[in-house]
Design a protein around this nucleic acid. Structure first.
Lengths: 137, 137
DNA sequence: CTATAATAATTATTGTATGAACTAAATATG
DNA sequence: CATATTTAGTTCATACAATAATTATTATAG
């Protein structure tokens, strides 16, 4: 869904969306969406199964979203839900071997896009560009 | 749904998402979403009712998406569907007075955010920043 | 002219995201 | 200790975006 305003505001928004679409197109070929890949990254970085509420906090989304996302990831056998004996309210998401492998493949795809982007932007100072963008968040 | 990779790729994606979220939060206060505002902008710029397929093309999204979006806009009385006597397959979306007014209010919100962004980025050359971002799309 | 193609829009299904209402369990407070 | 509050997760309703399949109409080819 594109917008066509010639402003810096929409330049940033459209550039972000264009890259997101490109990345999500690549991820799709290995059966991942941005949401699934993001969840797998969070779980892979954690090195221990995370409570779903922690996932929601780290991924800055609401709990109900995580519930559904984990449902889909579980159906794909990329994670499994395990009960937490310390807190019987809590459910922890544990990344499977299959999930960990797919996450790594996703990282490789990101690295390729990052390299491609570096080419596109070769004329400018990446670090200052990134710092500028970071001000926006 | 945030991602946390420290790359230029995700700097652009996250910056775009941050601005989009900010804008959509402001638009929400006048009852608009990004999708609704985008459709109203397209129709307001056209100065004549547009066939839904033309809307889909201009907004780079699929027709089924437009069908649903126009359903919601029609329920809000921001557009109305009118039949096309020239081609009985075609349905044209006509922006209402209420829709046109809301679209203008949306433009004002965008202008405020653009000004705010200009402040944030005051140290850099906006034009070259925009051109850099434009390479990405 | 008739059979076939292409086009316009809708419906149905799925994925992603949010918020509200709910259940169960843990924690805090009187 | 009993009650109230908070926290964890799910379910439900809604919005938005995409795909595939369907219907209706128009255009094209033989």
């Amino acid at each position: 869904m594109d917008h066509h305003k010639q402003t810096t505001l929409f330049s940033v928004i459209n550039a972000g969306n264009a890259l997101e679409e490109k990345l999500s197109g690549e991820l799709e070929r290995i059966g991942l969406s941005m949401a699934k890949y993001g969840a797998l990254c969070t779980l892979a970085a954690a090195e221990e199964p995370l409570p779903l509420s922690v996932c929601a906090r780290q991924m800055t989304c609401v709990k109900s979203n995580i519930t559904q996302l984990m449902d889909r990831l579980e159906k794909d056998e990329l994670i499994e839900r395990i009960p937490d004996p310390k807190d019987r309210r809590s459910v922890r998401a544990k990344i499977t071997e299959k999930g960990a492998q797919l996450q790594k493949t996703g990282d490789e795809i990101c690295a390729l896009l990052e390299a491609e982007l570096a080419q596109t932007l070769s004329a400018i100072d990446h670090k200052s560009f990134r710092e500028t963008l970071h001000k926006i968040q």
